[in-house]
Write a protein that binds this DNA or RNA. Sequence first.
DNA 1: TATGATAATACAAACGTTTGCATTTTTTTA
DNA 2: TAAAAAAATGCAAACGTTTGTATTATCATA
Lengths: 341, 341
Amino acid sequence: MKKRRVKLEDIARKLNISIATVSRALDKNPRVKPSTREKVFKTAEAMGYMPNQIAKSLSSGKTNIIGVIIPRYDEPFFIEVCRGIDHYAREHNYKILISSSRNSFEFERENLISYERGIVDGIILSPTHETETFTHIRSIIGKGIPVVLFDNIKEEVSGADHVLIEDDKASYEAVEHLIKTGRKRIAFVGGIKEKKVFQDRFKGYLDAMQANQIEVLDELILHCKSLDREFEDTEINEFLSNLPEFPDAIFTCTDNYGLLTMKTLLKMGYRIPDDVAVIGFGDLGLGEVFVPSMTCIAQPSFEMGQKVAELLIQQFNEPVDKNHRKKVVKLKTELVLRDST
Amino acid sequence: MKKRRVKLEDIARKLNISIATVSRALDKNPRVKPSTREKVFKTAEAMGYMPNQIAKSLSSGKTNIIGVIIPRYDEPFFIEVCRGIDHYAREHNYKILISSSRNSFEFERENLISYERGIVDGIILSPTHETETFTHIRSIIGKGIPVVLFDNIKEEVSGADHVLIEDDKASYEAVEHLIKTGRKRIAFVGGIKEKKVFQDRFKGYLDAMQANQIEVLDELILHCKSLDREFEDTEINEFLSNLPEFPDAIFTCTDNYGLLTMKTLLKMGYRIPDDVAVIGFGDLGLGEVFVPSMTCIAQPSFEMGQKVAELLIQQFNEPVDKNHRKKVVKLKTELVLRDST
DNA sequence: TATGATAATACAAACGTTTGCATTTTTTTA
DNA sequence: TAAAAAAATGCAAACGTTTGTATTATCATA
């Protein structure tokens, strides 16, 4: 005894009216008489009617779903952005379909293509470090599917709005803070070189050093290669253990690098901030808990998510294809001073 | 010049064959001649055909989407479970639609109902602490939609498989470990009393204490009320500051409670583990980084996600409604010993 | 070379909505 | 009270697939 779903037809039959009227009644279309509308609502309720979203979508060409592609789940930054997206999206009656590209360009492409099957109204994407060419994104946009990018954008794509923070500027400020508080020998711990955000953060570091006439020493620079938490630990460990002369400050490009650095330093017996100062990037909650608490560049991740969603939904509502000019939104960061500096 | 999507009809027209044949050809149905199949594939490729998933879903009654409802995003445990779900789901050609109930029963219900509109093939849910009654879930199941629950399950729902860990047993072991290493005055820091997992973890604590004839002192027990990171900090702070006589160990019910506790202890000048030992619950990465590193009950979150997804997909493939007997899967935890004990 | 068997293809209904237009009913007006 | 105007409803096509059954084309057989 498989129970069949109630559909408009069932309500129509029971009330001896047409499907069209039922549909309009439920829509509160003024073209149907209040009294019939009432009847329809009551019967729908009584019969346990639930509209079929798929049929609706087919008919209307809208699914009210936003596809989100992030490089990985286990990075609080991305989750926080998703939370922001979700927040804005729900308010505007959209749901989010999340998938991870697992730091792989191929996966990113596949995910994108799968979304092209019409299951989402638009796409929010943060490119992986592997993403060098943006033709897959251009192709999607060419098909009229709205796209918004955030973070780590290497290439300008016309038609793709994007949201980012000024990584170089943020780093510059942080490093300058270190210099202003008397640090001279400042090390850099960054991430994989292929990733634009890390390039920019590195640039900020270099610029600040040069602007203050401090020599940049290769031996004080680490670009972590790993994409995995454990290996990051090892890399940082080795880096710090093999330094010829010790730095008096370390600027790191993520919260996690910062924490791992602090951990290693403490284990090696250094005092923070007396011997070494440390700065992290992101400020997603952990820096505050660590002892000593960590000075961080605070990135407005939640807001970034909201903004990204806002731009996308704007695109939905724009007159189609009025050769959409790309919008770029830059969000402000803030240096949050804590005990580590 | 809005570009229209290529559909089966376009291919059919171009090749002068019927839509049905095109559909079957793309399906590699043996009923179509190899030579036409080839032609169809070539033309489809050339015209840039992309199947319309919505139309497919309407026709087939399957969306290949799994709906996931978690109480909150900013809890690494839930994200890790989602990652597990996603992992298993993708392998089986399902995508996941995530939403947060924001710790509210009302939101949970709304989300559930919105999924009832046929946009998902099945639902994975972790109930909020507010969820006392399970009629909304029963109702969904009654409509033939597969549901699997995980974590924090207060009530047995026939037809709803679920996956959990034995919270009481895990806590028992942890507290026993403290006792065995000579701790006597053991404090408890738990979460909101309404949440089943916290009830169970508290029970484990009580049982272990009683089994070892240690008196349970109310003054050493804290049930945090807040659902927000910041307030947790304050609560724990106050609790620890106002203790008449200090404990020599603190068992905490989440990683975050553990870390906040350690932070506060260190700030108050206590040495860990010499003066006080601390244990956390979850082991989602942070406990290892903190100095001193934190002993934790490791919860297999990723595996939990995989298992949950597996159970759901199993339900999809089962002969419908053979009055499905509920399956309960219990996953093992492990006590990971580190510097804090 | 007609005849049946088999292979290949086409037709049309179905999935559950929405919506432009036609039709019917009700109300207003002269 | 008949005609015109307005309101309410109904019909049927459309959204892009899948799939059971009917039809046509091809082939082997006698």
